[in-house]
Structures are given as C-alpha cells and as structure tokens.
Design a binder for these strands. Structure first.
Length: 377
DNA sequence: CGTCCACGTCTAC
DNA sequence: TAGACCTGGACGG
C-alpha cells in the first residue's frame, strides 16, 4: 500500500466504510503485535480518518448521548504509519484478514470489524498520537508550506545528498517513497544522483505553474524534451511534481500500489519508470533500488570506494564473495552483499554496465511475469 | 528446498 | 551507515 497516495486512499476508504457506522467496546490488538495497546473503551463511538504525508490519523469520537459508566468519554486520535505493508480493511468478524493487528468492532449484528492489516509488521500506531515531529508538510495537501519549507532550507545538509535520496527524507518530502521518486525524476529527466541543492536552488518560492491545469502539464511534459521552451510556458518544476504526481495516483481512484489487488493493472500501466521494462536500476547509498533512465548523475554510488577498511565479512557472505571473485577486502558489508547478489543473480538476468558499476537494465522477464500474474487475477 | 526482493522507518555502533 | 525488524511471492536448482 504505502506511499503518500496509498495512505490518503486508505483514509478515504475508512471514511467511506465507516460512514454512519457505530463502533463499540474495546479496541483489540493481535497477540503478536509489539505496538501499544489502545485503551479506548466506549459503548458508542464513530471513526473518522485523515492523512498527512505518510501517516493516517483515526479519530475515535464518543457519541455523547450514549456515554456510560466506564467509557473513556474523550475523543482519541490514533496515528498510523504503514511500514511496507499496512492497510485498512472492513470485514465481517469471521472474515478477519490474516495479520489484522488492530481491530475496531461495530455494534451491528453480526458485527463488522475495521482492522489495520500489516503483513510485515513494520507499521506502527500511536494512541493519543499526533503527526510525527520531524515529518514535514504533506506534499499533496499542504503544498505551499511543503514548497516553502524545502526552498527556505536548502542550506541544510540534507540537500547535499543526491536528489533521489533527499526525496525520501520525510522531514522535507512527507509522502514521497520509492516509486514516486522514480516517477517524479523520470518525468523531468533529472539524473537521480545529482546533488539535491543543485537541482533545487534555481526554483522560485512562488510556484509559477500553480495555475496550470493538469492536462496542460501533461501535454507540456510530453512534448517538451528540450528544457528551453519550458521557461515561457511555466512548466511544472520538481517540487510541483512532488505534489501533482502523487495526486495522479489518488485521482486514479484505485488502490494505488497494491500488487495483491485486481485493479493493480491500472496502477501498473500508470508507472512509466519504476519497475518498468527497459529502465535502469541501481542501489542508492541506503541500499534502496533507484529506477531511472539515461544518465545516473555524478553522485551515483561508485564501485564501493569504501573510505575505511571495514570489519570482516560474515562467513556466508564471504563465501558468496569468493564465488563472485571481485570483492576486495576493504569494502563495506553492504557493498559485499550487493556485489555478491550481482554475482549470483544480477549478472545472469540483467546487464551489468562495465566492471563494478552496478547499474542494471530490466530485461523484461520479471516485469512481464508480474504483468501476467496480475492480469490473471 | 533456498535465495532474492519488496511501497519504510528505527536505532545502535 | 549497517543492520534490525518481518512475511511472503517469484524464481532457480
């Protein structure tokens, strides 16, 4: 599910299914979850949701006339982060999904359950929570303050990173994730490993394209491969695309990134770069896969020029490294693992550019296969 | 069977 | 800036 658009779609989903529904009793947690208990007990309450960047807030509101002994009586906000696999579902009690880790019960007979489902359990919730400190304005719904915050903090060291890595910094780009950074940079043909400050320092605080309709942007985007003609037509710049590209996903009306769902094919067709056949991919400095086309930019992680001699490689990895035959002892463990992977699988299925350069080109096999699977559903 | 990979944070050296 | 935190699907042998 989970980048900004999916979180927002989740909040829309909750508001839709919970409209007019009265919830009751305790909020229960799965035995296996390490997150907080939610000590909210109320005979009758409603649930509303809102989103900001990569967080969703549920507001539990007691229905006044029904307040009884033992009820909490107070409104409670619970703030969720979705990790890699979180989402909400609304089902009957006996159809509770596997990995439903937090559950809210309706007062209907038979009752229905709003549940927070999270297969990998990287997600979290905070009872009586508020939007996390250190996360900036939402790229979708607080666009002006998002833009202002970025452009008035360009001297910050965060912007010394490559632009593709800065885009994952939720202090400035709350809502952007791995597929969005690829799609956004691809639309503007910005090499992912150019220093963020370099890319952003020429942008104006005021968004001159703010009046441009999405349709117009779309046309501009298609026909203007030369940057010069963009000036007069005031095209969308990088920060604006951080706003409009996620909104495209929201407005598609599907579920966004969710390979398990039948309507995933719409989302898949929308993707122009991320996991698309023929695109290149490489690991960024944090080990995340960056999808792009064309030039990678100067700050691309090189052939693991490690600055300091590192700890010995773990035995398993060492074996793999020996097989690959290309790993000097000074490399970091992450590099070793990565190259070991290239040696074992990457080199076979994907083209590796030059010696040591870890840029790969998607050769279609995996992409086409996943196409087939999703169509088959 | 085993290995790799995935939409993201966190936190401990 | 490495892991750690998790489950499960795709793929290879």
């Amino acid at each position: 599910m989970p980048e900004g658009p999916e979180l927002h779609l989740a909040s829309l989903f909750v508001n839709k299914v919970c409209e007019g529904v009265v919830f009751t009793g305790p909020v229960t947690k799965s035995a296996v979850s390490k997150n907080c208990d939610v000590s909210f007990i109320c005979e009758a309450y409603r649930i509303q949701a809102s989103s900001r960047g990569k967080e969703v807030k549920l507001t539990l509101t007691p229905i006044k006339s029904d307040v009884k002994e033992g009820s909490t009586e107070q409104t409670m906000d619970i703030v969720f982060r979705f990790g890699m696999s979180g989402y909400f579902r609304f089902t009957s009690e006996d159809e509770l999904p596997k990995h439903a880790h937090l559950r809210f019960f309706s007062n209907e007979k038979p009752c229905r359950v709003l549940s927070f489902v999270d297969t990998r359990r990287f997600g979290s919730w905070q009872p009586n929570g508020s939007w996390q400190r250190g996360r900036g304005p939402c790229v979708m719904f607080e666009y002006e303050s998002f833009r202002k915050k970025v452009l008035s903090n360009l001297s910050n060291r965060a912007f010394e990173r490559p632009i593709c890595e800065a885009l994952l910094n939720q202090n400035y780009f709350n809502g952007i994730g791995n597929y969005l950074r690829a799609e956004i940079l691809f639309r503007l043909s910005i090499p992912p490993f150019v220093q963020a400050r370099t890319v952003l320092e020429s942008l104006e605080l005021e968004d001159l394209a703010a009046d441009t309709t999405p349709e117009k942007e779309e046309l501009d985007d298609q026909k203007t491969s030369d940057r010069e003609s963009k000036r007069t037509s005031q095209p969308a710049d990088l920060l604006r695309l951080c706003h409009t590209v996620p909104l495209e996903v929201v407005n598609m009306g599907g579920k966004g990134y969710d390979p398990q769902k039948a309507d995933y094919s719409d989302f898949q067709a929308w993707l122009r770069c991320y996991y698309v056949a023929g695109m290149k991919s490489t690991r960024d400095h944090n080990g995340r896969t960056m999808w792009f086309s064309g030039d990678s930019g100067p700050m691309v992680p090189k052939e693991c020029k490690s600055t300091k001699a590192k700890k010995r490689v773990k035995k398993e990895d060492n074996d793999a490294a020996m097989v690959a035959e290309i790993v000097p002892k000074v490399k970091t463990e992450k590099c070793v693992k990565q190259e070991a992977r290239n040696g074992k699988t990457g080199l076979r299925k994907r083209k590796v550019k030059q010696e040591g350069e870890v840029t790969r080109t998607c050769d279609n096999t995996r992409c086409l296969r996943s196409n087939k699977t999703s169509e088959a559903r």
